[in-house]
């Protein structure tokens, strides 16, 4: 790595986010660490290498938008927003405590930087579509990014949104699918199979890219490239590992909402360096 490599900062932020998110789950005794960790490299790439925003002006009309459609992954979202400067770090220990601004699922009225309330699956993508339509109507240049889980793709509202975005050729809209192949109870393919997901989106009029969702250099190249002139919305299928970065969590569905004990927390902190 050399001094101006944008991935240095992304790696640094992603490591901090993983450590801090796991601590939040450990202290709250609640959370969704498996899905936080599959998404964190994508989120760190967006917030520290791709998106244009100003944390001191969360309502800036020209900001790029990020929507966390898999709203349960608040460990990833809140650490990203905190690291981006939207709120002070001393808010993080309130995670899921009574009257906390840091709900189990994000609320835009509580927390600056949250674009819409999510939690029930299949909601974020249609809202992101609406934002992208608004930007197109107003001739604004901002981009809209929405991250869904892969299990979340089983919700029909996503396909209503996919059909609409393809029809409208919204090149300012990017859908990222966190393809960790696990949902709450089991694998996606044994539950309700999604493959071939890329062909499905192509058939709906999208430009599709497959990427290693933990290769931040590849994510950075893909997500920061201009989509102008493509005439299609971009779907990035990010192949990820649920629980990525902590050996005992990786690829285990039980860590969807698992909570570490003291020994597991200590081990994770040793591994996350």
């Amino acid at each position: 790595m050399h001094a101006n490599d944008p991935t240095d900062l992304i790696h640094e932020k992603a490591l901090w986010m993983r450590r801090r998110a796991f601590q939040m789950v450990y202290e709250a005794r609640l959370g969704h660490p498996g899905g936080d960790f599959s998404a964190i490299d994508i989120m760190a790439t967006l917030y520290f290498g791709v998106m244009q925003y100003d944390a001191t002006r969360p309502d800036w009309a020209e900001r790029d938008r990020f929507i966390m459609s898999k709203g349960h992954a608040t460990g990833a979202l809140y650490t990203a927003l905190c690291a981006a400067g939207y709120f002070p770090e001393d808010w993080l220990p309130t995670y899921m405590q009574p009257r906390s601004m840091l709900n189990g699922h994000p609320n835009r009225n509580y927390l600056p930087g949250v674009e819409t309330n999510t939690g029930p699956l299949g909601h974020g993508f249609p809202v992101a579509l609406g934002i992208a339509i608004a930007g197109q109507m107003s001739g604004q240049d901002f981009r809209t990014f929405v991250l869904t889980g892969d299990g979340e793709q089983q919700e029909g509202s996503n396909w209503e949104a996919a059909l609409n975005a393809g029809h409208r050729k919204l090149e300012n809209l990017t859908l990222i699918i966190d393809r960790n192949r696990l949902q709450q109870g089991a694998g996606t393919e044994e539950t309700i199979g999604l493959d071939p997901l890329d062909d499905k989106y192509r058939a709906f009029g999208w430009h599709v890219e497959m990427v290693d969702g933990h290769d931040v250099a590849a994510l950075h190249r893909l997500l920061s490239a201009s989509a102008k002139g493509r005439g299609k919305p971009l779907c990035v299928i990010a192949n990820t590992v649920k629980g990525k970065g902590v050996s005992f969590m990786e690829n285990k569905a039980s860590w969807h909402h698992g909570v570490p004990d003291a020994a597991q927390f200590a081990q994770a902190m040793e591994e996350l360096v």
Partner: peptide
């Protein structure tokens, strides 16, 4: 014509899109 958004027969996305339009400064 440019201010009428017809999402087709799709009520969930219709309401979700309207939230996004409001986020983007419109009054849907």
């Amino acid at each position: 014509p440019d201010r009428l958004i017809n999402v087709g027969i799709a009520e969930q996305v219709m309401v979700g899109v309207s939230a996004g339009l409001a986020n983007g400064g419109k009054v849907p």
